[in-house]
Design a binder for these strands. Structure first.
Lengths: 197, 197, 197, 197
DNA sequence: CATGAATGAGCATTCATTCAT
DNA sequence: GATGAATGAATGCTCATTCAT
C-alpha cells in the first residue's frame, strides 16, 4: 500500500504538495488539474472533492505560501536590534522570493481581476507579513534609529522596493555587470537606508 | 466594405490598440487572437496578415510601449539639475506605468520563458530607457550630489524600486491608509534619497 | 445517456470503425478528429480518452488491419502442398486488400514520414504476414517446386507484385477490357509463375 | 530585372517548376498555394490567373510528369529486340519512380476520389505510357519470345508489378537483406520472366 | 497581368468541469 | 471518498479562395 499514496494519507495534502512542485517545475500557466491529478496519482475528479475549483486550489496554495513566508520572516526576526532586524527581514523576504519563484508569482504577481474571489483570509495573511516589517520599523522609531511618517506606510514603501527587486530578478531583467549577490545586497541596503535617521 | 472600421483605417493600428485594451481588461493569459479579432471587428486570420504570430504582436506592443515611455522620459529630462532631473524621471516612469497599465504589463511583467524569441531591438529600447536614468545619476555624481558605485547599477537599483511601486499599485495590493498620490510621492523620494550624498 | 450509441457500447470500438469508414470515403488526408467524432456521435474530446492522439488512433487501425490480414492468411494456408498454398495466400492477400480498402490504405499506403512514431509492435505484425509467404516459398524449395535466391527476398518480390495489383485496382487505375476477376487471376498467376522451377 | 523572375518569363512555367521542387522537397501534403507563391516570388492570387484552382495545378503537374515519363520511356525503347526493349522499359519506369518520388506520388498514388475532375487528357497520357509497354509485348509475341493473352492486359499486369515495386521502395517498406539494386534487378526480372515463352 | 487585404472553415489538442456510478 | 467517461469551449494557426483595385 505504500505503492501509491500511503493509505490514510490526506489526499488534500498530497494535491497541495504536488501542485507546488508542478508550479515550480512547469510554471503557473502549465498547471492543470489533469497534470496535478496525474502527479498525485488520483483522478482529476477527486481534486474537486477537496477544492471547489482551480481558483480555490490556487488560493489554498497562496495561503500556504503566505504561511511559509511568515515562518521565514518570524525566524529572521529574532534579532532584538531594529536595524539588524529589518535588514534580516528584508533579506529573508528576497531570499524567499528567489528560492520559490513560482510560489512568488502566484502570491504576488497574479493579476487582480483573477482575484475577484480572493478570500479574506489570504488578505489577512498577507497583511500579517507586512506587519512584521512595520513592527521592526516602529521599534526602530522608538529606539531613535528610524524615521518614518507611519510604520504601516513605511512597511509598504519597503515592500514595493523589495518586490521590485524580486520581480525583476525573477524575470531576468537585471543584467547589470555586478554579481547578483552584490546587486541584491546593494539594493536592499538602498531600500533600508532611506529609513535611517 | 468593412463593417465597423471606417474605410481606409489602418487595421494594424486597430489590432494593436484593441490588444492593449484587452490586455488590461482580461490579462495576458486571456488574450487570444480570436478575442482581438472580435474586438477589432475583423477575422482572426486577418491578424496574421499584419503580425507573423501572437508573439510578434506582443513584441510590437512592447516596442511601442518602450517608445512611448522613452518619449515621456525624454520630455521629463529637460531639467538640467541632476537631482531635479532624476526626480522628474522617476515620477515620469511611475506615471507612465499607472497611466498605461496595458503597456506596462507586457513590457515588464511578462515572463522570460515567453521571451525566447524576444527581438534584439526591444532589448535595445529597454536599455535606452535605463540609460536615461543612468545619465542623470552620472551627472549627479559629477556634480557631487549623488553617490553611487556605478551609474548603471544605480539605475537598476532605482528601477527595481520604481518597478515594485508600479507593480503593486497596478495589482491593487497597496491598501495603505494614505492617499495614493502621497504614497507615491513618499516612495519615490525614498528611492531617490538613497543616492544623495 | 448517450444519444445514438446504445448504452454500454464500446466507444473505442465505434471510433475505430467510423475512422475506417471515413478513411475510405474521404481519404487519409481528410480524416480529422472532428469528423470522426461527428460520425461516431461523440465529442472530439472523447476520442482522446481512448487514443493518445491521432497517430495512436491510426496505429491502432493498422494494428487491427495487420491482425485481420494475418487471420485470413492463416486461414488460407491450411493447404499442405506449397504451390497451392502460395496461390491461396496470394489470393487471400489480394482479396483482403480489395475487401478492406480502408485498412489497406493505412496499412500499406501511408508515407514513411508519417510513420516516425510507428510502434515496433506494428512492424512485427507486418513482418509476420510476410513470413507466412516466405514459409510457403521455403517449403516449395524443399519440395523442389520453387526456385528462389532466398525465401525472404522472394516473399518481398511477391509482395511488391501483389501490392501493385491491389493498389492500382483500389485506385481504379486499371481499365483493362478484361473482367476484374480474370485480370486478378492472371496477374497473380504471373506473379507466382516466376518462382516455379 | 533578372533579380526576381526575368522579365517576360512565363509565370505559369515558373509556378509549375517551383511546385515541382516544393513537391520533391516538402511532399504533397505540405504543398500550399501560399508556399508556391512565396517560392515563385508572386502573390498567391496570381497563381489563380494561371490555374483555376489547386486541383488544376496538380493536374498540370501530373500532365507534365506523364510527359517526362513518356520521354524517358521513349528514350529507353530504342532497342529493337523486344525482350531487351521491355527490360529497358521496365527499368526506366522504376528509375523514374525512384528518382521522382513526389512526382510519382502525385501521378499514381493520389486517391481516386480526389480525381473526380481528373482531366481526360491526363488519362490519355497515362495510357500512352502503357501502350509503349504493350507494343514491346506485342512485338515480342510476333517474334515468338513472349506469350500473352492480350498485349494490353499484359502491359497492365507488368504495370502492377512495377508499380508495387516502386511504391514499396518509396514507402521504405522493403527491408530485405539484399542490396536495393539487386532487389530491384530481381523483382524486375521476375516480373518479365512470366511473359517469356 | 497582378496584387494586397480579407475571410470562413478547418486543424489537433488542451482545459476546467460535471455527472452517473 | 473516489472514479471513468464525457463534454463545450477555447487555443494558435494554416488553408484555398475571393474580390476590389
Amino acid at each position: 500500500m505504500p505503492e501509491t499514496r500511503p493509505n490514510g494519507t490526506d489526499l488534500r495534502r498530497a494535491i497541495l504538495d504536488e501542485s507546488r512542485h508542478l508550479l515550480v517545475a512547469d510554471g503557473y500557466d502549465n498547471l492543470s488539474m489533469r497534470k496535478i491529478a496525474r502527479a498525485v496519482g488520483c483522478s482529476a475528479t477527486s481534486i474537486y472533492l477537496h477544492f471547489e475549483n482551480k481558483d480555490a486550489l490556487i488560493h489554498a496554495l497562496i495561503y500556504e505560501g503566505m504561511e511559509r513566508l511568515h515562518e521565514q520572516l518570524v525566524a529572521a526576526s529574532d534579532e532584538a536590534e531594529p536595524v539588524a532586524r529589518l535588514n534580516a527581514l528584508a533579506h529573508a523576504y528576497v531570499r524567499f522570493g528567489l528560492e520559490n519563484p513560482e510560489y512568488y508569482q502566484v502570491m504576488f504577481q497574479l493579476h487582480p481581476q483573477r482575484m475577484e474571489r480572493y478570500p479574506v483570509e489570504n488578505y489577512r495573511r498577507a497583511r500579517r507579513n507586512l506587519e512584521i516589517h512595520a513592527e521592526a520599523l516602529a521599534d526602530g522609531v522608538m529606539a531613535g534609529v528610524f524615521k518614518v511618517e507611519s510604520a504601516d506606510t513605511g512597511a509598504h514603501v519597503l515592500w514595493t522596493a523589495l518586490h521590485g527587486l524580486v520581480s525583476l530578478l525573477l524575470a531576468e531583467r537585471v543584467d547589470v555587470k555586478v554579481a547578483d549577490e552584490a546587486f541584491i545586497e546593494g539594493a536592499v541596503r538602498h531600500a533600508l537606508d532611506g529609513f535611517r535617521t
